[in-house]
Design a protein around this nucleic acid. Sequence first.
DNA 1: GGCCAGGACACCA
DNA 2: TGGTGTCATGGC
Length: 225
Amino acid sequence: MPKKLITIYQTLKKAYGSQHWWPAESPFEVVVGAILTQNTSWTNVERVISRLKEKNLLSAKRMSKFPVKALARCLRPAGYFNVKTRRLKNFLIFLTEEYGGNLKHLFTEPLAVLRQKLLDVNGIGPETADSIILYAAGKPIFVVDGYTRRAFSKLGLLKASASYHETQSYFMNNLPLNVKLFNEFHALIVEHAKRFCKTRPICGPCPLRSGCVYGRMHHTRTGSS
DNA sequence: GGCCAGGACACCA
DNA sequence: TGGTGTCATGGC
């Protein structure tokens, strides 16, 4: 079974090449992007990241001092802007109070401690926490998202009902504990999903031959208004 | 005009 | 423990 995962990884890597994730210039930018991209397309997140750069706000200390209302206006293009403003502020308050606003200090925590501390911040769930740990802190943890669960249950390697933790354990128990590998693998799964999602089904032959209809997220619903 | 996007949480039974 | 409503913009 371990060999199977490595084979899938190699297939995706050969098909799409290195993904060079996370697309950010600093660890703090990764944290911001991880929160902003919750249930949101990356192109919408990029608009906000650009705005924040223009305003020189991609620093924990400067963003902490920035007025909430003005920050919310900046976040508009990423959607759920009120929620995400609150979540960013929650993280900043946590970082300031416990680590003097210094990400490096936070990232010196052991992985398990770091993960629990992040999960204790309201608005940071498993995927966001793990993205921060892997892509900002550079520690080995496998990031699971909706694509991962759909793709690997479609391939028959996971139950459709597999939880976040079960999915993560499957990867981490069957792969070497390697930051670079985890980095690329998750990025490749996302890249694969972007090419073969329901709304954009045509992008050449599917390298995994999995049928490649990911379907929609089970919990995603558009407003009923 | 409807569907979807690199989730998380509150609330309910 | 598991299901459902809510949050919201922008591309296609």
